[in-house]
Design a protein around this nucleic acid. Structure first.
Lengths: 191, 191
DNA sequence: TTGATTTCTTGATAAATGTCAAGCGTCAAA
DNA sequence: TTTGACGCTTGACATTTATCAAGAAATCAA
């Protein structure tokens, strides 16, 4: 399996022994998904966990009156509906490829095998999820304390490249504003 | 140790064997904290994980221009700065008792012992944190898709009792609005 | 390349929310 | 009982953000 995947496993989960990294990475398959195709449909069970190798996925949900983009998954990030994967509940998000996308993907069954391969796996996994939880705390804080313009600024500083790669309306939605507001903020900042 | 704590351990973590529940609960101490006292100070390391048995804690942060309430912890909920507890990083939140509060509290050192007492502990812990993560997803979604009034309604439906127990300004803050907006929403709904 | 489609921008206006200041009620300490 | 602190409400007004509609720009497919 691939060096880049092994780097993810090492970086995100802190697995250090090469044999173990190899054992985990062998459970992943490199899979491709075409632009517009769905990695996950809301209502279905999430059967796979994936790490994006190249390309982009959009996590969103269709509400009665609008579509809400919850996140855009970029290279190196994981994609799944975590609660659906873990609890076998119906997925709450649609996940769709914004461009042709390659990812390292593992089935739920194989994912659950990792625990028996690596003694401290559930601990490492816990640490990974705590990091995710902490990012969510930060994101909530941004909505409690910042204006739309401030949220734009912070996100742009950390994700500038994304602004050339996806329809801006999706970034607007995931920052909690309309495309028009987003556009006006950009205009204001440009001057 | 106490039946109520054992119920939390059973409910939140899914520990089933009575001996194990007992072993875990014995590591907790019932501790009291007076109204206004701090359970955690931002910048310090979070050394304890606690479950509120009675009373209320407010999780907040002081920014340059205002104080932001991130959460109010009620009976049965856990209190800590999770990332600080897990990674030994400085706490990002202040946690202060809103009223005299009793909680079952465990030190980080004892907490980390649980893994050696119960084989599947890290798995159970993971499931617990995934549930927390999912709640954060929902909360972010509420900020991406709902107005202040809708957030008020949803929160009120699920936490009506809290409205008689804490200064409403704190609820306003944790829902991402000013006390004045909060007050006007209440007036509107009353009519 | 061209036409169709989608996305982005802009203006006008409306609605939601924030800010500031004042006043009122409640509660507890003096 | 009074006084002061605190929290809530209200009004006037400002600012932010959303909505709607139109057109410009970019992208995609034939």
């Amino acid at each position: 399996m691939n060096n880049e995947l092994e780097a993810y496993i090492s970086t995100y989960f802190g697995v250090v022994r090469p044999k173990e990294i190899k054992a985990i990475s062998d459970l992943f398959q490199l899979t491709s998904i075409k632009k517009g195709a769905y990695f996950l449909k809301a209502g279905k069970k999430s059967e796979r966990l994936s790490f994006v190798q190249s390309g982009l996925l959009r996590v969103f949900v269709q509400t009665a009156d609008k579509e809400v983009t919850q996140w855009i998954t970029t290279k190196g990030q994981f994609a799944t509906d975590l609660s659906s994967l873990v609890f076998d509940s119906p997925a709450r998000w649609d996940i769709q490829a914004l461009v042709d996308t390659e990812m390292y993907s593992i089935s739920k069954a194989d994912y659950e095998k990792i625990g028996s391969l690596i003694p401290e796996w559930h601990l490492l996994e816990k640490l990974f999820i705590v990091r995710c939880f902490t990012m969510m705390e930060d994101r909530i804080f941004s909505h409690l304390s910042m204006s739309a313009e401030e949220r734009y600024q912070v996100f742009f500083e950390n994700n500038a490249a994304l602004f050339n790669e996806v329809p801006l309306q999706y970034i607007a939605s995931m920052l909690g504003m309309t495309p028009e507001t987003f556009s006006r903020i950009r205009k204001k900042i440009a001057n």
